[in-house]
């Protein structure tokens, strides 16, 4: 579904992604873990063309990534990035109405369905400023889902949340996993990554250091850097 080959991304002289290749199959759930600054988020941002790659190829369903097909990929951000001047339901309706030219009534019904899927139908008319972090992130997920993406990219979806709100967001993602949504998730939630993923990718210094099943990666990783990282994460 996604085929990324030898991606190189530089910010000025600093190479953030140094020849990363990633293949995502339909229905697959991939977690990307690794220390801060390892290029995990940048990889996601390249996949949906928020950042332009310097070298390499990205194909979506066999076609070169372009502004016409990058919207097959939905994205959920660390800082939610909801539109603050729109209510929850307007946030969800916006893209179907403006981009897909869906009728307002149909879009409203769709948005209500999406909001009830994330358990927020009663907050439809609330503005982002009136919602908790966890609720905001759930609205953001509903907003991404409303465009019926083939893949959803999650960029540290729980990193900006208070600890007690992490669970509700992870719950929604688990529900999507049960529905076999294709997902690439950058996360620091190790237990979650282990539970939900088909494949875990460890990145460091702009490269994929090791990848494998959650069992292999968490129980006996080969690479010393992965071992050190996991040991550090498990102490917290």
């Amino acid at each position: 579904m996604i085929d990324a080959i030898d991606i190189v991304k530089k910010f000025d002289d600093f190479t953030v992604l140094d020849g990363v290749s990633l293949n995502v199959k339909k229905g697959e759930i991939i977690s990307v873990i690794g220390p801060s600054g390892s290029g995990k988020s940048t990889l996601l941002r390249c996949l949906n063309k928020i950042e332009e790659i310097d070298e390499g190829v990205i194909r979506i369903d066999g076609d070169q990534l372009s502004k016409h097909n990058c919207s097959k990929l939905g994205m959920v951000f660390q800082n939610f990035n909801l539109f603050p001047h729109m209510s929850a339901i307007e946030n969800v309706m916006e893209a179907p109405v403006i981009v897909k030219k869906m009728g307002k009534k149909e879009a409203r019904e769709l948005a209500l369905r999406m909001l009830s899927d994330v358990g927020l139908q009663d907050k439809a008319d609330a503005y982002p400023g009136q919602l908790s972090g966890g609720q905001k992130q759930r609205v953001a997920i509903a907003r991404a889902l409303a465009m019926k993406p083939e893949i959803i990219l999650f960029d540290e979806p729980t990193s900006a949340l208070d600890p007690e709100l992490v669970g509700e967001v992870l719950g929604v993602i688990k529900k999507l996993a049960a529905e076999h949504m294709t997902m690439v998730i950058v996360t620091h939630e190790m237990a979650f990554a282990r539970e939900i993923s088909d494949r875990v990718i460890f990145m460091d210094k702009g490269k994929i250091v090791e990848e494998g099943t959650p069992k292999d990666m968490f129980e006996n990783p080969d690479h010393p850097r992965v071992q050190a990282f996991l040991k550090r994460m498990m102490q917290d």
Partner: peptide, 19 residues
């Protein structure tokens, strides 16, 4: 982040600015 969210939803530059 507002531009990035709009982009990820498939909105073009004019739509992003206007909406």
């Amino acid at each position: 982040g507002q531009y990035e969210a709009a982009h990820s939803l498939g909105m073009n530059y004019v739509q992003t600015m206007r909406r």
